[in-house]
Simulated assay, not measured.
Amino acid sequence: MSGPDALTRSVLADQVKERLLESILDGSYPPDSRIVETAVAKELGTSQAPVREALRGLEALGIVEITPFRGARVRRLDSAELLEAYVVRSAIEVLGARLAMARLTDDDVAALLAIGEDMRRAADAGDGRALAIVDASLHEKLIQLSGNSTLLRVWRSLEPMSRTYITLVGPGSDPQWTAALHDPMLDAIRARDTEAVVAAIESHFDEVRERLAGSLPDVAEQQDQAGAPRARATS
């Protein structure tokens, strides 16, 4: 199919994918639950074709798995895979921060700090879901400000995986800890100190990985068997 019909279906599939991702993140579809194409199509008032395409997109992100004759299920993420994704995200965000800091305007700084304020308000309200969304938006904004569209695409392919895990099956969340984790990054952005931003991002991901690894005994066991060093926070 080509032309306007193909474009319309592609746009619709993207919209369905976002709706499904939102439902996965808010727990409407917990890990291992089935996503039935016909039910989603009926709920959203569309045909099955864009739903099928949306599910393939989520499969490419590692969020769902599609099995012949059994359909789609929300994927229960492998803990070691999640920690590997954080290593890659750290490297991507360090590169993004270096590129962004070289082009940052006063308005850009103000926008990033405003997101930080939104994060603090969500933490004070104890709203973990809102905090997860604002948290992601801060990281995404910094990548957007890098001006590198390829970097942004790669980042977006990894972020839903980690946010799905944290939202649904991660250890008991501490909103204040999560918000405070971003303070060094925001302080460095305010000071326009590129190296301090880089150090804050690296420390941020080290702390998150350490917290997850410490709460997931299967990760520690896998790392011991593989002879790999355990994630640790830097001082």
Rank of each mutant, 00 (worst) to 15 (best):
D124V: 02
S28H: 12
R232M: 09
Q176K: 11
G57S: 11
I189L: 13
R209L: 06
E140F: 04
E93N: 04
A196W: 10
R156N: 15
D183A: 12
D32Q: 12
S33N: 08
P184G: 09
L216M: 14
I66L: 11
A188S: 11
W155E: 07
A233H: 09
A39T: 01
L83F: 06
D193F: 05
L216V: 10
P217R: 02
S235P: 15
A196F: 05
T167S: 15
S173L: 08
M185L: 15
R129L: 15
A180G: 10
M1I: 04
L99I: 05
L142M: 14
R76P: 02
D174I: 07
A54I: 01
A199R: 15
T234F: 07
S137I: 05
R52D: 01
S10A: 08
E53Q: 02
R153L: 12
G227M: 07
T178N: 05
R156S: 09
V198T: 09
S149D: 14
A228I: 08
M161I: 14
P175A: 06
T38G: 01
I66D: 09
P184D: 07
E65F: 06
E159G: 02
L61P: 04
D106G: 05
G214D: 13
G128E: 09
Q144D: 10
P171S: 10
G96C: 01
I143E: 02
G170I: 09
Q15H: 05
T167W: 13
R73T: 15
M185K: 09
D224Q: 11
D183E: 15
E81T: 08
V154G: 05
P217S: 08
A220D: 08
E84S: 12
G3T: 11
A132H: 11
V74N: 05
R153N: 13
A6T: 03
T167E: 15
D218C: 08
A125K: 12
G71L: 02
A188T: 10
